[in-house]
Amino acid sequence: MRGVGQIRRWYAQAFETIEGTLHHKEKAALADGNMALLLWAYDFEPPTGGTPPADVHLTGRVLLADCRSDAGAWKLLFDIDTTPRNVTRALLA
């Protein structure tokens, strides 16, 4: 996805159609001047008896990179998701 419009449309439909519980844990955070990074791991638990949509990753790690604009507003620069097999619900406890 690229741009605010595409991202906004995806999240709007996702929150209306995806049911379940998202377990997550911050693993690292760093802010330095006009750049901030946040690393977290997640595990998606579908409702009992439910099947997650095909495009939903059940476990993963996310790196968010934000930068501060000249006007002082924080803007998302990168949102990188990976799906390593070593992310488990126990890791998030």
Rank of each mutant, 00 (worst) to 15 (best):
A90P: 09
T21E: 12
A41P: 04
N34I: 00
F15H: 10
A41E: 11
L76S: 05
N86Y: 10
L39A: 06
T21V: 13
W10N: 03
G5H: 07
L64P: 03
L38R: 12
H23L: 14
L63E: 13
G50S: 08
G50I: 08
P52R: 13
A14N: 10
D66T: 01
P46C: 13
P53K: 15
L76V: 05
A14C: 11
L76G: 12
S69R: 02
H23M: 08
P53T: 06
E19V: 07
H24W: 14
L91D: 13
M35I: 00
H57F: 11
E45C: 05
E19S: 11
P52K: 09
A65T: 15
R2L: 07
G33T: 00
T59Q: 15
A36Y: 06
D81M: 12
T21C: 01
V62S: 07
I7Q: 11
A54K: 04
R2Y: 04
S69Q: 02
A14V: 04
A29I: 02
Y11W: 13
E45P: 03
Y11E: 04
W74G: 03
A41T: 09
N34C: 01
D66L: 13
W74F: 07
A31P: 01
L30N: 12
M1S: 13
A28L: 11
L38T: 02
M1T: 13
L92E: 06
L63G: 15
G50C: 05
H23G: 09
T48C: 02
A54R: 09
G60I: 04
L37Q: 09
F15V: 07
E16S: 06
